[in-house]
Amino acid sequence: MNTPAATVPPARRLTTSAMIASIAEEGQRTTKAPFGHALNRLAEERPDVVGLSADLAKYTDMHIFRDAHPERFFQMGMAEQAMLGAAAGLAEVGLTPFASTYSVFATRRAYDFLCLDIAEPGLNVNVVGALPGLTTGYGPSHQATEDLAILRGMPGLTIVDPADSVDIEQAVPALAAHPGPTYTRLLRGAVPTVLDEYDYRFRLGRAAGLRGGRDVLFISTGLMTVRALSAAKELERDHIDVAVLHVPTIKPFDSDTVVREAAKGRLVVTLENHTLVGGLAESVASSLAYAQTTARIVPIGLPDAFLAAGALPTLHDRYGLSVAAIKERVRREL
């Protein structure tokens, strides 16, 4: 006999938290809303900084800035094209806009406005896209699995994929100081705090070696750098020595460092929260090809497909982004 809906326990019915779950591992240190707090600190020092949102301030951590500086915040509604056009106008009169929405809407919906209103005149507009790659289980309408591929070809656009709260907090003032347009893949909410353990400093356009290793080289970006570090530590138990090179800037790409590290004879594994088409793996491969350097590359990333909806941890296992899946892949390839 069917159970009446009224008798189903609420805990079983309200399961949406798994759809946009924290990307932090169990027991990992986190920082709440690092982008919002970093932007607020920057705004206290720079009166030219303004914020815009396409009706998603709460979901891009822009609400921290909004509440502290309401006179410098512009709620544009569900209209990303209008938001980017307005941001361009604000930049034209000497202000420094940070415009936030979901990555899918900034890239798929508003590409032409980003290209011709912002990138072509080289304006300092900082587009901040939440839910990059597979950071939601809501399905293809919200999963920006191809945003890097869409934007890498845009002339003059700087693209940043931060790994954790430390990366985000250090990137915000660097983006504001950069003279041209930027796009950042935002990790929001309770964001892992990891890179402070590695004497890390964000440098726009530069990759950073986080740990050495003689057997395998992980080249990673975004949230996958945190997974790479965890997998590297756990692979030590199997006597597999893994180095980790973090690439926080996808464009301009630090080809020199990547080629130098990849040429040391280790298995090279790229890790990205993005389709394998047009992202980090192809950037690494083309850098090696242009430098006439050979290395065996194993790409870990998302398939060239529209992904399923579902609970986020389950999807990360299914598509190979979990720490367990990374370790298993490395063991198979060695």
Rank of each mutant, 00 (worst) to 15 (best):
A6W: 10
T7F: 10
V8K: 07
P9D: 12
P10I: 10
R12I: 04
L14F: 10
T15R: 11
T16Q: 04
T16V: 06
S17R: 12
I23W: 00
I23L: 15
A24Y: 02
A24K: 03
E25A: 11
E25D: 08
E26K: 13
G27D: 03
Q28K: 01
Q28S: 09
Q28V: 03
R29H: 04
T30H: 03
T31C: 05
K32S: 11
A33P: 01
P34T: 00
P34N: 00
A38T: 02
A38G: 05
A38S: 12
L42R: 05
E45V: 00
R46H: 08
R46A: 09
P47K: 09
P47V: 01
P47S: 12
D48R: 09
V49Q: 00
V49Y: 01
G51Q: 02
G51E: 01
A54E: 02
D55S: 13
D55Q: 07
K58H: 12
T60K: 05
D61W: 04
R66M: 13
D67V: 09
E71C: 00
E71D: 15
F74R: 02
F74S: 03
F74G: 02
Q75E: 15
G77T: 06
M78Y: 00
M78A: 09
A82V: 07
A82H: 14
A82S: 12
A86Y: 14
A87R: 06
L90P: 01
A91M: 08
E92A: 14
E92K: 14
V93C: 07
V93S: 10
L95N: 01
P97W: 03
P97S: 07
F98P: 00
F98S: 04
S100Q: 05
S100P: 01
S100R: 01
T101W: 05
T101I: 08
V104I: 15
F105E: 06
T107V: 15
T107A: 15
R108Y: 11
R108A: 12
R108N: 10
R109I: 08
R109L: 13
D112S: 14
D112H: 15
L114Y: 08
C115F: 14
L116T: 14
I118E: 02
A119W: 00
A119M: 08
N124Y: 01
N124C: 09
V125D: 06
N126P: 04
V127G: 02
V127H: 03
V127Y: 02
V128T: 08
A130V: 07
L131V: 14
P132E: 07
P132S: 10
L134M: 14
L134H: 07
G137N: 07
Y138T: 07
Y138I: 05
P140T: 10
P140A: 12
P140R: 10
P140Y: 11
H142L: 15
H142A: 15
H142F: 15
H142G: 06
